[in-house]
Structure formats: structure tokens, C-alpha cells
Amino acid sequence: MTIDIITQKVIGCAIEVHKQLGPGLLESSYESCLMYELIQAGLLAECQVALPIIYKNVSIDAGYRLDILLPNKLIIELKAIDKLLPIHSAQLITYLKLSDIKTGLLINFNVTKLVDGIKRIRV
């Protein structure tokens, strides 16, 4: 499955969650429901995955957690905020670089139309 097909499936799952729940809930609620939808769609996904920093060949757990990871394929960073800011894109870009994964989705569920809250990032 290509990364474009995977991201389309993930976006479809996120849209379904947003249709069912709407805006205004906690990020953790969207995460749990999106995980359910991803598994139902046949995608292998993990949530709250530790992302260590490799510093001078030493793995250091600095407390970074990926909201949702499709191993070796895609990082999904979830938000439930008023507006996405450049710092949120920077956060996802950093996660992509640290994990050596090339594609990420930044999804903000606190919008009227979910497509307005989705940003795809490639490094």
C-alpha cells in the first residue's frame, strides 16, 4: 500500500470520527476513537509510542510520545485546539526527523469541517 493510499484511509477514518463526535472534546477522546477506526480499516497502528532522542549514539527517553504511529510509514499528531500554529507543524517535523519517517498528518479536531484542520507534512 502506498503512502498516499494510507493517508487517504487515515483521513477517511478521522473524518468518520469527526462526523460522529464533532468538535469540542479532549484530544484523548479523538485518539481513542481514531485508533478504533484505524483498526477497523485494517491498518496497523499504535498509540502513545515513546520517541527517544539518539544523542551521541545513546538512546535518551526525553518524554516525547507520538500520538499515533503506523510503524515505518506515518506519524499522526492530533490536536483539539482553536487553531493550528507553526509550532505544531514544527513539532511534527521534529518527530518525523527523529523517527526517520517521511510523512506525517497533523489533525486538529476542533474545527467545524475536519478538512480545514488537516495538514500533511513530508520531510
Rank of each mutant, 00 (worst) to 15 (best):
E77T: 04
A14W: 04
R65A: 09
N108A: 03
I107M: 04
R120K: 13
I107S: 02
T7H: 08
L98H: 04
L105N: 01
E16S: 14
Q48R: 05
P86W: 00
I68H: 05
A45Q: 12
L70S: 08
L84I: 15
L66D: 02
G12N: 14
Y30S: 01
N72A: 08
I53K: 05
L51T: 08
C13R: 11
N110A: 04
A41M: 12
I6T: 15
C33P: 00
L34A: 00
P86S: 08
N110E: 07
A62Q: 13
Y95P: 00
K56V: 13
L78A: 03
A14F: 06
V17D: 15
L85Q: 09
I93N: 00
G12T: 13
Q40C: 13
E37H: 11
T2L: 14
I121N: 00
H18R: 10
L84E: 04
I68G: 01
H88A: 12
C47V: 06
V58R: 14
S89D: 06
Q48K: 09
V111D: 07
I5A: 14
Y64F: 15
K97V: 06
E77Y: 07
I11T: 09
L114D: 08
L26F: 01
G104N: 03
L96Q: 04
I101W: 07
N57V: 09
C33Q: 09
P23M: 07
I54M: 06
P52N: 12
Y30I: 01
K73W: 08
G117W: 00
E16C: 11
T2Y: 08
L66T: 02
L114T: 03
L84V: 14
I5Y: 13
E31Q: 14
I101L: 03
I53A: 09
A62V: 15
I53T: 12
H88T: 04
K56F: 08
A62D: 07
L44R: 14
I11Q: 09
G42M: 11
C33S: 05
I3F: 10
E37D: 07
V111I: 11
S99R: 00
I5C: 11
V10T: 13
D100A: 12
G12W: 12
S99P: 01
I15S: 06
E16T: 15
I3V: 15
I54K: 10
V58C: 01
N108M: 13
K79R: 10
D82T: 11
E37K: 15
L92C: 05
E27N: 06
I3L: 13
N72S: 11
I54Y: 07
I11W: 05
L25P: 02
I87S: 08
L96D: 02
N72L: 01
G42N: 11
N72Y: 12
A45S: 15
Y64C: 05
T112E: 14
Y64P: 01
Y55I: 07
L66I: 14
N57G: 11
N108L: 08
T103P: 02
E77L: 08
I53L: 12
K119H: 04
V49W: 03
L84M: 12
G117Y: 01
K9F: 10
Y95D: 00
E77I: 07
R120T: 13
G42W: 10
F109L: 04
L92I: 09
L106D: 01
A45M: 12
N57A: 14
L66E: 03
E16N: 14
D4N: 15
A80P: 06
Y30D: 00
P52K: 07
L25H: 13
V123T: 09
N108R: 07
Q91S: 03
